[in-house]
């Protein structure tokens, strides 16, 4: 509300003051644009935050191309692809939730937010399965990498070890769990856990804010006037999806 409208009403209080419009904004449009620009500025800092890890990835992949190629074979492409689809679907439901909020479709908003939340948990569930598998296999960062010691009988038989004898694993077999030049895949798994871990933390934060929106939606407190809050959470959630869109081919699809 501008000073001019104060004068014309002749009262310091605004009788028609819109509770959704903060005093320091001229109108709803300005408030909306400011909120969106603030969110985009935050997303920019997020992109630059992740860029450090992408840069580390680029440097090490260019230094050790064979190591990345060999190590990526330990990742489960099917689970990675399923997780990509889960996140893409959650992006669809999130974008739909924004539409529902703008059109004040309360039931649709609750449904789409709940679906988004379910997908977020699904993503983390699959990630948990992948992580625990890697912990058991010794596919760990840096010096903790110990894949040859953790391999199952099939793998050992494949590499010519008689699994019924108690003889030690031949050195040649231990080497089979290393890169061609004898380097450990620990470097790759360091990068893998750092990138997917930071992404996973972002998914957790996304769950928190979507849950907050869901509660607000159930309480009927999300109206067209304040739907920008859904819009901004949506922007954040799509960014989480975007990061994964790049992580998936970079980590899982190295041939």
């Amino acid at each position: 509300m501008s000073a001019m409208s104060d004068a014309s009403h002749g009262a310091p209080e605004h009788p028609e003051h819109d509770p959704h419009l903060a005093h320091h904004f001229d109108d709803a449009q300005q408030q909306f644009d400011a909120a969106k620009m603030g969110m985009w500025t935050f997303l920019v800092t997020e992109i630059l935050f992740f860029s450090g890890l992408f840069c580390a990835y680029a440097v090490y992949r260019s230094l050790y191309p064979d190591l990345f190629e060999g190590a990526a074979k330990y990742l489960n492409t099917t689970l990675g692809a399923i997780n990509t689809l889960v996140l893409l679907f959650s992006s669809l439901t999130m974008a739909w939730a924004v539409r529902c909020a703008q059109l004040e479709q309360k039931k649709g908003l609750i449904l789409t937010l709940a679906l988004t939340l379910a997908c977020a948990f699904g993503f983390l569930g699959i990630k948990y399965a992948e992580y625990s598998h890697k912990f058991h296999e010794g596919l760990l960062p840096g010096a903790n990498y110990s894949a040859a010691l953790h391999q199952g009988p099939e793998w050992l038989e494949e590499h010519g070890v008689d699994i019924h004898s108690h003889a030690p694993i031949p050195e040649a077999v231990e080497q089979a769990a290393l890169a061609k030049d004898g380097r450990s895949y620990g470097l790759f798994f360091g990068i893998y856990f750092a990138m997917t871990g930071l992404h996973g933390i972002h998914v957790l934060a996304g769950i928190a804010v979507i849950l907050f929106l869901l509660i607000r939606a159930i309480q009927g407190r999300i109206k067209r006037e304040n739907s920008v809050i859904v819009d901004n959470v949506g922007l954040y959630w799509h960014l989480v999806d975007l990061i994964w869109i790049f992580l998936f081919p970079l980590l899982y699809l190295i041939n």
């Binding site: 109108d27 709803a28 449009q29 909306f32 539409r99």
Partner: peptide, 10 residues
């Protein structure tokens, strides 16, 4: 008072 609603693309 300006438009009570922002012009939002749906």
């Amino acid at each position: 008072h300006g438009d009570p609603y922002a012009h939002i693309h749906v």
